[in-house]
Design a protein around this nucleic acid. Structure first.
Lengths: 225, 225
DNA sequence: ACTGATTCGTCGGGCACCCGACATTCGGTA
DNA sequence: TACCGAATGTCGGGTGCCCGACGAATCAGT
């Protein structure tokens, strides 16, 4: 499926930092879409790597992207983002190098925009700048949420909280236990134990790379003691 | 000391999301300073509380402000911010309620700007919007840094990392051990033990509400294993 | 249906950390 | 100087979690 420029523009208008008091005019959206290049990133490929010169940023249109930093032998997952999120803009605006790597964990469609095209555009079109701002602040908010989820909490509580946030419309979370462990900074075994606990409480059902939320009530009770 | 409007404006031009390619014109700075009200918050008083309707945001000019969320009987410190940082803007732009409380931990001078004054201003002056954006993203970056510091690390490593970041020009960190423990989400006793360890390694010297960094080398070695 | 790779489930040992308690030291204040 | 609240230093008990290991279950490709 090949999307036209207009389709990308429409998607941007609807998704990027959407707020009721900041309507994006069609020409704003088109200008933004024109400033970037649509890339199709295959599973496992990198958008950029830690230490690269940050000359561009990326808007995720489809798929999941993982932001992580190398640490000794392993790595720490900073965040996992989906459609509508922007990555790499921090380092880009500050004209430094990326301080974490971004990797597509599924196949992904992204819009790559270079610094020298974006900055004049945002300066010329205030609505775009504001939308970008609101979008960035949303990410800040979810990152702060994550800190709260990490601090002073047992793995059981963290897992319950994560399931609340990540469940889709059908109550399913399609992540492996190892991935969940990485997101929480816990060990796979501990996550497994927590899931067993929740399963025996009747709050969830587990399967291969799949967790189904059955009882939201119980789950949120465990998550926020 | 009473600062004039111009002084506040000059301070804003110099501090808020400073980047070389986004020079703030004097009239931009003055317009921003005029849009807000300078408040003198005494130690321990609140800028806003969790759940309040977010009709304004605050720029810190002087002092330290703590962002925290109530949790059961205690509280989790989301972040601790100083001059140049903006608080409350996330909730304000999204027209929701604040999701954490902000409290001045020292005496503080802040600039309060209301939503209805700020939004038109940012739309009219793109440079301000961009500066605001860069500033917000800086906070996002430091929050992500904090996640990395929290995950997969022993208290000793976390303490060493925090001392690296928080030390002033003289190598001193003026925080009580209880405060450090709160920032890291650890217990006071564990922080104390970690400090004792670093002291016997000759990396630091400790005193009453004061830690002096002696050996940066050793410290960073402990912080990043 | 066979096979290799991935994921899940579970066990025991070890330890870093939390918690409660208490003595000691420091700093501001009368 | 004497006092009192706050901060520091230290101790043991209990435990949540990490780590290594291994078998069973599941999925994808031939």
């Amino acid at each position: 499926m090949v999307a036209t420029l207009d389709q990308h523009a429409a998607w941007l208008a609807k998704s990027l930092g959407r707020t009721d008091y900041l309507p994006m005019r069609p020409d704003d959206a088109v200008a933004l879409a024109e400033a970037g290049v649509v890339l199709n990133k295959y599973k496992g490929t990198h958008l950029f790597r830690e230490g690269d010169v940050a000359d561009a940023c990326y808007i995720i249109e489809e798929g999941e992207v993982e932001l992580y930093r190398a640490r000794g032998s392993g790595r720490s997952v900073v965040s996992r983002i989906g459609p509508g999120a922007v990555v790499g803009d921090i380092a880009m605006f500050q004209e430094r190098t990326y301080l974490s790597s971004a990797r597509a964990v599924t196949g992904a469609i992204v819009l790559r925009i270079e610094h020298d095209r974006l900055v004049p555009l945002l300066l010329a079109r205030p609505v775009l700048a504001m939308r970008w701002l609101v979008n960035g602040l949303s990410q800040l908010e979810s990152t702060q949420q994550r800190i709260i989820r990490l601090m002073n909490r047992t793995v059981l509580e963290q897992v319950a909280g994560l399931l609340e946030d990540e469940r889709d419309a059908f109550g399913e979370v399609l992540l492996s236990q190892a991935t969940i462990a990485e997101l929480l900074g816990a060990s796979r075994q501990s996550v497994n134990e927590a899931l067993s606990q929740l399963r025996s409480d009747g709050a969830i059902d587990t399967g291969y790379r799949r967790i189904t939320v059955l009882d939201t009530e119980t789950l949120s009770l465990v998550a926020a003691p």
